[in-house]
């Protein structure tokens, strides 16, 4: 596999428990910088759980315990002196259901940069908001209604707003947990297009249920099953010549 420095994230021996239930049984995985990595697998196999480990969103869940290492460019993100809050500015996340804040579109974007003290309110902020919305290819649709509530947009627009909101913090990695599962095919196509552009600047990890989406949009694919990483490799290889029988069964739709 690639050398350490091309790895954005290096995961070694990651185990996770919800109370007594072991949801992940020791995962080793390298996520490469500037690529789109897709996680696939039957539901309940631990894809979301694993994804949420990467920016420590699982910290919020009572009774959740993690063992093993997750390194962001060689830095252990579970080290005791790491500030979780700061970590999440480097590794952003987009959720399954679009969750815009009940504020205006402008405020949805400006909220985090303001809190992080990135820019002052005023022309600088306007510019930042515009850039973020442009990068998320939603600027043209909302530029005339920045003061309207974000919740009034369509589902697909809301999800792109959420992506724009994440971009505005200028993270290194964007985690997406089934970002299209609540969207119609057209909105899905737009988001896939968007991912293709975003990977120039960001490392993207996406959980998806949709095989075509994984095949179309990702460079690398990881197949999970019952809390284990079964197979990982270049997407083209996984989808044409999987080395594991289970992976093949899943991809060809024989189960899952």
């Amino acid at each position: 596999m690639a050398t350490d420095m091309k790895n954005k994230l290096t995961i070694r021996g990651l185990k996770l428990w919800y109370g007594d239930f072991e949801a992940l049984h020791g995962i080793d995985l390298d996520i490469l910088a500037g690529k789109v990595t897709a996680f696939i697998g039957p539901s309940g196999c631990g894809k979301s759980t694993f994804l949420r480990c990467l920016n420590r969103m699982n910290d919020r869940i009572a009774g959740c315990r993690v063992e093993g290492d997750v390194l962001l460019e060689g830095n252990d993100i579970y080290a005791p002196d790491v500030d979780v809050v700061q970590l999440r500015t480097h590794i952003g996340m987009v959720f399954q259901k679009p969750n815009p804040f009940p504020k205006s579109i402008y405020e949805n974007i400006a909220y985090a940069p303001r809190i992080h003290g990135m820019v002052q309110d005023g022309p600088d902020m306007d510019e930042l908001v515009e850039t973020a919305l442009r990068k998320a290819s939603i600027w043209d649709e909302v530029k005339d209604k920045l003061q309207q509530p974000g919740t009034a947009l369509s589902g697909g627009q809301q999800q792109r707003l959420c992506i724009a909101r994440t971009i505005a913090v200028q993270p290194d990695v964007i985690l997406m947990d089934e970002p299209c599962s609540a969207l119609d095919p057209i909105a899905t196509a737009k988001i896939e297009e968007l991912m293709d552009e975003l990977k120039q600047e960001y490392t993207i990890v996406i959980v998806t249920h949709n095989m075509q989406q994984a095949a179309r949009a990702s460079d690398y694919t990881a197949y999970f099953y019952l809390g284990d990483l079964i197979e990982y490799g270049e997407t083209s290889q996984i989808f044409t010549a999987p080395s594991n029988q289970r992976t093949e069964d899943y991809i060809t739709g024989r189960f899952g």
Partner: peptide, 11 residues
Amino acid sequence: KSNALRADLRA
């Protein structure tokens, strides 16, 4: 770059 990141992650 990695060092800068390391510093940034610390308080």
